[in-house]
């Protein structure tokens, strides 16, 4: 049972020593070949894609990439993808569909990049297209939130059959900092916003957004990367087996209805 506050988790997942997808991939997959480029504009290192094998099964892997140091972060833009990143993800997802490979997404982003070029190349359109196409992608999709899942930039890899959160991972519609600036005109109150926004793994399960929480050894993924990788792998293998035994039309109907029923209102 995780008794950390959302703010404590926020601090934890921002620590530089927290493992990233680059630490996990060699521990989870037997083989991994990175595939580059969106075939329209360029290759975005913030969103990595490739083909891999897990427990003997070929899969397509899509991942937002946090850097482990400043140099890596410069290359991966602090895991904030541009439109070409999302378009590469969609290209590889469609390829996975063609070859009947399940798709595994690792989400770890503060959000989609906000900049001039991102707007010029249609950040909104790129995310919208991913969301729509993943909703009807005819192959199982499983997503895991490794650290932070920021808004639309996370959802672009988050339309899936099953979503798991690492136990300290957070998923939010707006950065707590942004929320605090709007609410109190004071970004430094982000720790308060963290609690108000209901962004923890337990909140996600309660609100119907996530289906599973992956335990972090001894309270945080930092302490034992081998064990946490093992836990992620166990979840993925189990989910892949469950989903691949299902008729694809039923799986798609379930995926749609999972999202269709989210929302609270009276009438």
């Amino acid at each position: 049972m995780n008794d950390k506050t959302a703010w404590e988790r926020q601090c934890l997942i921002r620590e530089k020593t927290r493992p990233t997808v680059n630490d996990y991939i060699p521990l989870i997959f037997d083989e991994f070949y990175e595939l580059h480029g969106d075939r329209h504009y360029g290759d975005d290192a913030a969103l990595m894609g490739g083909i891999a094998r897990i427990d003997g099964i070929p899969v397509t892997v899509l991942a937002e990439v946090k850097g482990r140091d400043l140099n890596e972060n410069k290359k991966t833009n602090f895991a904030m993808p541009h439109p070409e990143g999302y378009r590469k993800a969609l290209r590889l997802a469609k390829q996975a569909e063609k070859f009947h490979r399940p798709v595994i997404c690792f989400i770890d982003t503060p959000g989609a990049f906000c900049g001039i070029e991102a707007e010029e190349r249609g950040q909104g359109e790129a995310i919208a297209k991913n969301i729509m196409e993943f909703m009807r992608l005819k192959t199982p999709v499983t997503s895991v939130v490794l650290g932070e899942a920021g808004s639309g930039g996370a959802l672009a890899l988050g339309v899936c059959d099953r979503l798991a959160m690492l136990e300290n991972a957070l998923y939010s519609v707006i950065s707590p900092r942004g929320c605090a600036s709007i609410l109190w005109k004071d970004a430094s109150r982000e720790h308060e916003a963290c609690e108000i926004l209901k962004i923890t793994a337990e909140d996600m399960v309660r609100l119907g957004v996530a289906e599973a929480i992956i335990e972090e050894p001894n309270g945080s993924a930092h302490y034992d990367v081998y064990k946490i990788a093992e836990n992620i792998k166990e979840f993925l293998v189990k989910t892949l087996k469950e989903n691949s035994s299902k008729n694809i039309d039923i799986l798609l109907e379930e995926r749609y209805s999972k999202f269709r029923k989210i929302g609270e209102f009276t009438e």
Partner: peptide
């Protein structure tokens, strides 16, 4: 909160 984000998925679907 997160319910709003999920409306993006719902409407696109």
């Amino acid at each position: 909160g997160i319910l709003s984000l999920m409306q993006m998925a719902k409407t696109s679907g």
